[in-house]
């Protein structure tokens, strides 16, 4: 069953000079229980899609069904069945203890005590919110608040969880605990996950399916492995070494780009399809002591450009 179904979904914005087509005849079908990463550069149509899916925005043309409902007329009914986390904006009550936000949201969703209390207790446990539950939200750190935001969106056990550019919580999202929690939430409840971002790293960890949107059109729709194959995009591993090296023996698919800082830093690029980051790291660590490393994903603009050159060939 499809939880999100759009057909030729189009949205124009009227601007002082002419109109701007933010979304151009998008066809998208998401099955219940899927985890989908929705990628695009700024201004590619990501937020427009979210607004259309949640009923905040009326389509110019085409149709959209979320949880089987027409979002705009059924906005409040839909709100009971979806949870939205806005990365840039807080849905929590700023000057009240975090716990109060959950209680207020439960009241808004008209959940009986017997339902929401155990649910919130579970979320508090899983997301480790216990120690700052009594603190006003404004006193929380960014990471703590983001966990609170995710819990707030899940209080009413929605069928669909939308994470809109949770950029400020990246560190949180990449944490294993959260990933496992979302995975369990999907397995047990069949919750669908819809994550928008402009950062490839985010989605690779959480989602098996990726949609790349560019100028309001879907430029790519497939698995992470497909994407790597189609684009041949390379990831970059930068390692800081305790002792300088001149050269390294690397596994096939990886390449030494540069040796910097008098041999203390190496820059390696590799194709994710041919060698994994873990294997590459193991190979480097076998030859030198590694102090620190960073992994850089290909920029989304880069991927889009590669997709287009590929399809042009």
């Amino acid at each position: 069953m499809a939880i999100i179904e759009t057909s030729a979904l189009t949205r124009d914005y009227r601007r002082r000079r002419g109109t701007l087509r933010a979304l151009d005849a998008l066809d998208l079908s998401v099955r219940a229980g899927e985890a989908i990463g929705y990628l695009g550069a700024n201004g590619s149509g990501k937020s427009t899609t979210i607004k259309l899916l949640t009923g905040i925005l009326t389509p110019t043309a085409g149709t959209v069904r979320t949880c089987g409902l027409d979002p705009v007329p059924a906005r409040r009914r839909l709100a009971r069945r979806i949870g939205v986390v806005f990365g840039q904006r807080s849905v929590l009550w700023w000057d009240l203890p975090l716990w109060d936000s959950f209680a207020i949201l439960a009241a808004m969703h008209r959940l009986p005590e017997g339902v929401w209390r155990p649910r919130v207790a579970m979320l508090v446990e899983e997301l480790a919110l216990g120690e700052f539950l009594a603190q006003p939200v404004r006193e929380l750190s960014l990471g703590q608040r983001m966990r609170g935001e995710i819990a707030a969106a899940l209080v009413h056990a929605p069928e669909l969880l939308v994470l809109d550019e949770p950029t400020i919580g990246l560190d949180v999202l990449s944490k294993n605990a959260l990933r496992e929690f979302l995975q369990r939430e999907r397995n047990e409840r069949g919750t669908t996950l819809f994550l928008t971002t402009h950062d490839l790293g985010d989605v690779q960890r959480l989602c098996e399916r990726m949609v790349i949107i560019d100028h309001g059109r879907a430029a790519f729709d497939g698995t992470a492995a497909d994407l790597a194959r189609v684009t041949g995009a390379e990831r970059v591993l930068v390692a800081d070494l305790a002792e300088p090296v001149d050269s390294l023996d690397l596994p096939p698919g990886a390449r030494l780009d540069a040796v910097e800082a008098a041999g203390h830093r190496v820059r390696l690029s590799f194709r994710p399809g041919e060698v994994s980051a873990a294997a590459l790291f193991a190979s480097v660590a076998g030859q030198a002591r590694v102090d620190d490393l960073t992994l850089t994903e290909p920029a989304i603009e880069d991927l889009v450009a590669r997709i287009y050159t590929r399809s042009a060939e």
């Binding site: 607004k51 949640t54 009923g55 905040i56 906005r75 409040r76 009914r77 709100a79 009971r80 979806i82 939205v84 806005f86 840039q88 904006r89 807080s90 849905v91 949201l105 808004m108 969703h109 008209r110």
Partner: peptide, 11 residues
């Protein structure tokens, strides 16, 4: 944009 966060609630 605070209005958007209010619009996705069932009240």
């Amino acid at each position: 944009g605070q209005l958007e966060t209010l619009l996705v609630r069932p009240v």
